[in-house]
Design a protein around this nucleic acid. Structure first.
Length: 422
RNA sequence: GGAGGGGUCGCAUAGUGGUCUAGUGCGGCGGUCUUGAAAACCGCUAUGCCCGCAAGGGUAUCGUGGGUUCAAAUCCCACCCCCUCCGCCA
């Protein structure tokens, strides 16, 4: 959420953001300003009436009982006027809030314009791509061959994009998660198991709703399944005031992630690169206000993910996402794409964003600054490891001619003695 | 799921219709005293929004949302959360 004062004073900047993020038609800034000015108008009227009402009530208690009747009838009149005005005010506030929740964040200055993924820029490529003296298989052929991935029975039980992992597949998948947790904990992050079903406030607060509501599964009791631990982690301190000395807050959560993948029916039909359920270790950081602090941490979170990929010996490239391929709440976003030999291409495995106070305003997370003032924190997040997609990358990059898979060295401590999947 | 108890200022507690401008204690901040400190004493001690250059004023907030009333922390209704016991259960 943006500050209403900011929107009022910079309508053109906000309109441009709406357009650049390809959200034209989803929110009308002129309408919003109009609604706001009517709301403020009503608010002033209501508060004036309330002051009058309070004054009259106060008088009644101080005056002799026989003199009360006249004042009471006067106060009753004011009360009746107020009832009507207050219900108008409530409606007005609700429509204003609804509009405000649809206003996106402003992209940072160095974010390129683009309508979609073709506008993204390659920042750099890292790592050495593996070379094979045979035709590399894709992760499905490998997984089926080793009997560690079963999508046939997965779809039988869970529908399209359902899958089972089996035996060493389970081990490899969990090894990646455990390794990621150790890596990030050693960097001073708190690691958390988070709620997988959370309330609407958390989704709206992190900016997944209202925009991405269709992409989520909603269950009973007004809860929805998280598509990322980001939702739970970023909401962890909702409605709280932190101390500046306790910032930055560094959290890493592990959880299943549930995504409906509406509108991706034609993509990734085969394999387990795109599933309705996967597991992810996610980094979330809360920092003091200021663009530079956030930009530093944005890079830091990127380096954490890069370190993981480097240690795994995977080749990847860093992408700067364009305006049209960013989330509404994001100010700037890097994606990391990891090399998949079978597809002879890079596929997204990480997504690194900063938000400034966009999420913190929605979630009401503040901190007491050293000078005593209250400020909103700034939030950031990045993937650390998402599997089975990352597992698929490991499988493809570490495959051997006979269809077996060598376990990367850094995962060996987590593999219970298994050095090779065969 | 059943029965009972509870949610008040950072913490603890008082407060059953108007004097609540929410009291008191603790903690925190400032001051007096002191060589310094402690103790004692004095003062301060929330947040959002609106109006205002400011000083300041207004308004809302006692778990949340409704309602009754001229007036609600206090009465009524619904919901949420916490605790105890029972039942069920990984």
């Amino acid at each position: 959420m943006l500050d209403t004062k900011f929107i009022r004073e910079n309508p053109e900047i906000v309109k441009k953001a709406v357009k650049d993020k390809q959200l034209a038609g989803t929110v009308d800034i002129d309408e919003l300003l109009d609604v706001e000015s009517r709301y403020l108008d009503l608010l002033r009227k209501v508060e004036t009436k309330r002051a009058l009402k309070n004054e009259l009530s106060d008088g009644i208690s101080k005056v002799a009982p026989e003199a009360r009747e006249k004042l009471i009838s006067e106060a009753t009149q004011v009360k009746n006027d107020l009832t009507e005005l207050e219900s108008e005010l409530k409606i007005s506030k609700e429509s204003l809030d609804k509009l405000l929740l649809k206003v996106p964040n402003i992209p940072a200055n160095d974010v390129p314009y683009g309508e979609g993924e073709e506008g993204n820029e390659v920042i750099r490529e890292e790592g050495k791509k593996p070379t094979f003296d045979f035709e590399p298989k894709d992760h499905m052929d490998l997984g089926v061959g080793l009997d560690i991935i079963d999508t046939e029975r997965g779809t039988k039980i869970a529908g399209f994009r359902g899958y089972f992992l089996k035996n060493d597949g389970v081990l490899l998948h969990r090894a990646l998660m455990d390794y990621a947790l150790d890596l990030i904990r050693n960097k001073g992050f708190d690691i958390l198991e988070v709620p997988w079903m959370v309330n609407r406030d958390a989704f709206v607060g992190t900016g997944y709703f209202p925009w991405g509501e269709e992409d989520h599964y909603t269950v009973q009791d007004d809860l929805s399944l998280i598509g990322s631990a980001e939702v739970s982690l970023t909401s962890y301190y909702a409605n709280e005031v932190l101390e500046e000395k306790d910032l930055p807050v560094k959290l890493a959560g592990v959880s299943p992630c549930f995504r409906r993948e509406i509108g991706t029916y034609g993509k990734d039909m085969k394999g387990i690169l795109r599933t309705h359920q996967f597991t992810k270790v996610e980094q979330v950081v809360l920092v003091p206000e200021g663009e530079e602090v956030s930009r530093d941490w944005h890079e830091q979170l990127l380096r954490n993910a890069e370190e993981l990929l480097k240690q795994l010996g995977l080749s990847y490239r860093v992408m700067l996402m364009c305006t049209g391929d960013m989330g509404p709440g994001q100010r700037k976003k890097f994606d990391i794409e990891t090399w998949f030999p079978s597809q002879n291409t890079y596929r997204e495995t990480h997504s690194d964003s900063y938000f400034l106070d966009f999420q913190a305003r929605r979630l009401n997370i503040k901190y007491r600054a050293k000078d005593g003032s209250l400020k909103y924190v700034s939030t950031l997040n990045n993937t650390l490891a998402a599997s089975p997609r990352l597992m698929a990358a490991v499988m493809e990059n570490y495959q051997q001619k006979d269809g077996s898979i060598k376990v990367p060295d850094v995962l060996l401590p987590y593999m219970r003695g298994v050095k090779e999947l065969r």
